[in-house]
């Protein structure tokens, strides 16, 4: 199982649109408090299955074909930081909205860190394979509806309490589904641009037609 010990504060600040702002004492304290609250309430879990590329059946659109080109195996995964985090954010939306947005931001950081630890788990387990980055339903032309297929393929509601509703929203909300390719030959390093950033939907830069530069 994955344990989170620390959350990347710079990322949390970046999600909040605060890159480049020097935090005052009060903000610093608020960040500390929210980080430890999220660490306390997060219960990180993930599931995955490995498929031979010829058995993989979630082909829809062009982008996934590009993404998995040259791969022999496919990892289908999902991960969540659990329901308690949602609840914590919900409560704070009543009692302290500023804290709620900071918690929300750290929760996004947390699920991203769980995913990146997951990448390490796969790298460890599939030594000798190169891995693509995680490609999620909703990226490019890969239909968001496939969240449902992934959730049911992995039996995620029963095994880790991760569900998807009729509108393809993952619940608990701080969760991810994704597909990752494995190849024994080096994979052309695709740029990790906006397409796979989990801020892509609410990024200030993108909305103004800019780019954060990461």
């Amino acid at each position: 199982m994955i344990q989170l010990e620390k959350l990347n504060r710079n990322e949390a600040v970046r999600y909040l649109g605060g890159s480049g702002i020097s935090l005052n004492y009060r903000m610093d304290r608020l960040m500390d408090e929210c980080e430890s609250k999220i660490l306390e309430s997060a219960s990180p879990k993930y599931l995955y299955i490995e498929k031979d590329i010829k058995d993989f059946d979630l082909w829809q659109g062009k982008d996934i074909k590009n993404h998995l080109a040259g791969c022999e195996k496919v990892i289908v995964m999902c991960a969540t930081v659990g329901a308690e985090v949602d609840r914590l954010i919900r409560i704070n939306q009543i009692s302290d909205m500023a804290k709620a947005v900071v918690l929300d931001s750290f929760a996004s950081v947390a699920v991203e860190q769980v995913c990146s630890k997951f990448d390490d788990v796969i790298a460890e387990k599939y030594k000798g394979y190169y891995q693509t980055f995680r490609f999620s339903p909703g990226y490019g032309d890969y239909p968001i509806e496939l969240q449902k297929s992934i959730i049911s393929m992995l039996d995620a509601p029963r095994k880790i309490g991760l569900t998807v509703n009729e509108n393809c929203l993952l619940i608990p909300t701080k969760s991810v589904t994704a597909v990752m390719g494995l190849s024994s030959n080096p994979i052309e390093r695709k740029k990790r641009g906006c397409a796979i950033c989990n801020m892509r939907d609410r990024c200030k830069f993108r909305r103004n037609g800019e780019h954060c530069g990461l």
Partner: peptide, 14 residues
Amino acid sequence: KNKIFLPQLIQSAN
């Protein structure tokens, strides 16, 4: 102008 960020905006509002 990006001098303060979202949590500060909200705290001021509160």
